[in-house]
Simulated assay, not measured.
Amino acid sequence: MPNTENRKHPTAKTATRRGRTDGDATRALILEAAGQLFAERGYQETTSKAICAKAGTNIAAVNYHFGSRDELYLAVMNEVMQHLLNLDYLARIAGSGDTPEQKLGQMIDGLVQGLIDERSWHPRVWAREILTPSPLIDRILETETLPRVEIAMPILAEITGLSITDVKLRYSLLGLMSPCLMLMVINPDLPTPLKPIFQRPAQEVAAHIKAFVMAGLHALAAEAR
């Protein structure tokens, strides 16, 4: 007769940990499926039913893990921004001892690499949000865009010598955002005049963008002086 006294039984803690792991895996599946569908169809045309079908989960999984389709969309947008411009990465750069030009250059390098080398769904979700804003655009700007702008603005102020409150500093932000936004919104597979750029190394593309942006910032600095 087998000895069962020393046999290990799953404890409540082990079961809870397993349940949490399974839940995290399901949540990640839903997030990935939602990202792909939002990139393909946009916010308006993507249903919870379609997301669950693609993720292979129960129809109630979106509400269970995220609360609602809107909250799932916000989670997807957070994933998009963390993928393209990770906040911790930006904060480390901003807090380093590098020159402001070096800091900004590293930020551009990281973003361009994500846009050129990684043909993922992340930029396409953001492009759709820019071109056809969802009803959640205000929340997205507040929680995702503004924190990143707040990191970049002091660096731009250092380079240009402009006050952080000077409206002219917004021109420097415009000059920084414009080329990067173009890379986001243009489909690299379409025969546009910019298609050859997406076939070039990310380092080369970033170098040209940095040269363009830095020239504009230094022009503003000279004007300020």
Score class of each variant (00 low, 15 high):
R7E: 12
K8G: 03
P10H: 05
T11D: 11
K13W: 05
T14S: 13
T14E: 15
A15Y: 10
R17Y: 09
R18K: 12
D22N: 13
G23I: 07
D24R: 10
A28N: 14
E32F: 01
R41V: 05
R41A: 11
Q44C: 08
E45L: 10
S48A: 15
A53L: 15
Y64N: 13
S68C: 12
S68M: 12
D70H: 12
E71P: 04
Y73C: 06
V76K: 01
N78G: 09
N78D: 13
M81D: 01
Q82V: 03
Q82C: 02
H83S: 09
N86D: 13
L87H: 09
Y89P: 00
A91V: 11
R92Q: 07
A94K: 09
D98M: 15
T99S: 13
L104M: 10
M107K: 02
D109E: 07
V112P: 01
Q113M: 04
G114Q: 13
G114F: 00
I116H: 01
D117Y: 03
E118T: 08
R119D: 15
R119K: 14
S120L: 08
P123L: 08
V125Y: 03
V125F: 05
R128I: 00
T132G: 06
I137V: 15
R139K: 12
I140G: 03
E144G: 02
P147E: 03
E150T: 07
E150H: 08
A152L: 12
I159T: 02
I164P: 02
V167T: 09
K168N: 10
Y171E: 06
L174F: 09
G175P: 00
M177W: 04
C180L: 13
C180D: 04
L181F: 11
N187S: 14
L190G: 02
T192A: 14
T192F: 11
L194K: 05
F198H: 15
F198W: 14
P201T: 12
A206V: 08
A211D: 11
F212N: 11
V213A: 08
A215T: 13
L217P: 07
A219M: 12
A221C: 03
A221T: 01
A221K: 14
E223G: 06
A224V: 01
